[in-house]
């Protein structure tokens, strides 16, 4: 799959910084907030200087056909970077320029209303995930995904009774049913049972191939080798390496 990138730019990130106030990480009750304010009444007026610098000056660009694997230890900022690109988080500094539509998936066992059947959940998920589709097109997509999931008669039973593997089968089948200008997949190969994994991996690889550009976050180096044509290594929120897959994997392995 390691084809050469074309020149149509899909994503450009320049000097991206993301800073969170460290208090966000602390579980706080209303009571604790009142106590804190009571202890330090001027605290409201003071600027919070305790901050967590999650992404530090990250720059990169993706062209049509680029398939970027993102590697990094836990807490290095991989998912946060993907959330910023998808628009779920706003950068503190820097810019994210996206040309086209971005679809980002961070979880593969998505059930919305467990009392409804698998089919009804699949229909609802398709509207939430692909709101741009017209009714007929969406119905076809759902039917194809249901058939692909091989859930048989279970599809018309309540989603609440599904095992984790069955939930993943259905969600993965919907998620992988449509290409996008920029596709972000964060650990999406996990969740399905071993029999279904081979089938869904093939489908996701096909989806990656047909999408404009892809960002794939995974700890599985074989998947990165299989699906990507360049790699980004993040460490402590910084871009550590961007380039050749084998070189990146070597560097990532040395981080541990």
């Amino acid at each position: 799959m390691n084809s050469t990138s074309a020149s149509n730019k899909i994503l450009e990130i320049s000097n991206l910084d993301l800073v969170f106030n460290s208090h966000v990480y602390k579980e706080k009750s209303l009571r604790q907030s009142f106590v804190d304010q009571f202890k330090n009444p001027l605290g409201l007026l003071q600027r919070n200087t305790n901050s967590l610098h999650v992404l530090k000056g990250v720059s990169l660009s993706l062209n049509q056909g680029d398939r970027l694997g993102v590697l990094g230890c836990n807490g290095s900022g991989k998912t946060t970077l993907c959330r910023v690109i998808s628009g779920m988080l706003g950068p503190t500094k820097g810019q994210v320029k996206l040309d086209g539509h971005c679809r980002a998936i961070f979880n593969t066992a998505i059930g919305i209303l467990p009392q409804l059947t698998g089919r009804e959940n699949a229909q609802l998920l398709s509207v939430l995930m692909f709101p741009e589709l017209e009714k007929k097109e969406r119905e076809e997509l759902v039917e194809e995904a249901i058939e692909f999931s091989e859930l048989g008669d279970f599809i018309d039973t309540p989603f609440v009774h599904y095992s984790k593997g069955m939930q993943s089968r259905l969600s993965l089948s919907i998620i992988s049913a449509r290409v996008s200008d920029l596709l972000i997949l964060d650990e999406v190969f996990d969740g399905a049972d071993m029999f279904f994994r081979e089938k869904i991996t093939k489908r996701i690889l096909d989806l990656i191939e047909k999408s404009g550009a892809t960002i794939l976050v995974s700890h599985n180096l074989d998947q990165i080798r299989l699906a990507c044509n360049k790699v980004l290594v993040l460490a402590d929120g910084r871009k550590w390496f961007l380039g050749d897959i084998e070189e990146g994997i070597k560097l990532y392995s040395s981080l541990g």
Partner: peptide
């Protein structure tokens, strides 16, 4: 337009789910 479509679909499903 997309958000409205999502709201309508989720409202319908909520109503179906609530009294099932």
């Amino acid at each position: 337009k997309h958000t409205t479509r999502q709201i309508i679909a989720l409202t319908k499903s909520n109503m179906m789910s609530r009294y099932r």
